[in-house]
């Protein structure tokens, strides 16, 4: 059976569309709201959702995701609960779900069990920023048996040889990190994104999606021109944080996502 991420990108390609990917921290601000948010994002046109499983030491994340992870951890969100929530989500919808976390919780959970549970609960891919391809072979082989993609990141500092290697290793899509640094909404994006993507496309036919820093429709429009999709996390979570106990939350999320969507597809 084809992996749901691969299927989604084939479908997008056919329609000549770019992928709109959102990141949410699992269980933030609370479990009920989190579930509502995922459903809402799907309804507002998201193509894929990254579910951030919180870790105590998120070195690749900026302040926003550090805060949301801390809140989620206080509510005792762990991998086991994340799988349960993923299972619920998979029952209702067909949107590809990807886990984003750090290696230690996954290693501790047990690689084999992790892979099986991904399959069982409808997790189609995994992104682990602190697991470089050089160290990923055991997990990758195990995930492969359960048809779960392991998605790798390319940084702007990656030399050509490394870009080539990661392009080859990454499954589903390639996650291009727009900037040197950690996650978090930025006013301005780097000027080198276009030329870097150009280089990577010479090595691969796989889709490349760009994340880290994207926060505005104008950025989405620009990046959408020369990539296969964009990933937004912190900018969305900032809105969730601002409206978390207010009635307008879902409306604000809709406003933001539709602006991004319009920009991306224009």
């Amino acid at each position: 059976m084809i992996n749901r991420i691969d299927e989604k990108f084939q479908e997008l390609k056919k329609g000549g569309r770019k992928a709109l990917i959102f990141y949410l921290t699992v269980g933030y601000p609370d479990m009920v709201t989190f579930m509502k948010l995922v459903t809402a994002l799907e309804n507002f046109g998201a193509d894929l959702i990254e579910l951030g499983v919180p870790f105590s030491d998120p070195v690749a994340d900026g302040l926003t995701i550090q805060r949301t992870s801390e809140v989620a951890l206080k509510q005792k969100i762990n991998l086991k609960k994340s799988f349960l929530l993923a299972k619920e989500l998979s029952k209702k919808s067909n949107i590809p779900l990807v886990f984003m976390s750090y290696y230690n919780p996954i290693y501790h959970y047990g690689l084999q069990k992790f892979a099986h549970d991904c399959k069982k609960t409808g997790i189609s891919g995994v992104i682990i920023p602190d697991l470089p391809p050089e160290e990923a072979t055991p997990l990758k082989n195990i995930l492969k048996q359960d048809n779960v993609n392991l998605i790798f990141l390319i940084a702007p500092t990656s030399p050509q040889e490394r870009m080539r290697m990661i392009s080859k290793e990454s499954q589903g899509f390639i996650y291009y990190v727009s900037l040197t640094g950690v996650t978090g909404a930025r006013e301005k994006l780097s000027g080198t994104i276009k030329s870097s993507l150009h280089k990577i496309y010479r090595f691969t036919k796989k889709p490349i999606c760009v994340g880290f820093g994207i926060s505005k429709p104008s950025q989405a429009r620009e990046i959408g021109k020369y990539s296969d999709g964009i990933i937004i996390g912190s900018a969305l979570l900032n809105i969730v944080e601002r409206y978390k106990n207010k009635r307008g939350l879902i409306k604000e999320v809709e406003k933001f996502t539709s602006e991004i969507k319009v920009a991306l597809r224009s």
């Binding site: 870790f55 762990n78 230690n104 919780p105 290693y107 501790h108 959970y109 602190d130």
Partner: peptide, 14 residues
């Protein structure tokens, strides 16, 4: 970035 002994809880949180 290193694989070694670690003080962690039952969920792999440090």
């Amino acid at each position: 970035g290193s694989f070694s002994e670690l003080l962690q809880d039952e969920n792999g949180q440090v």
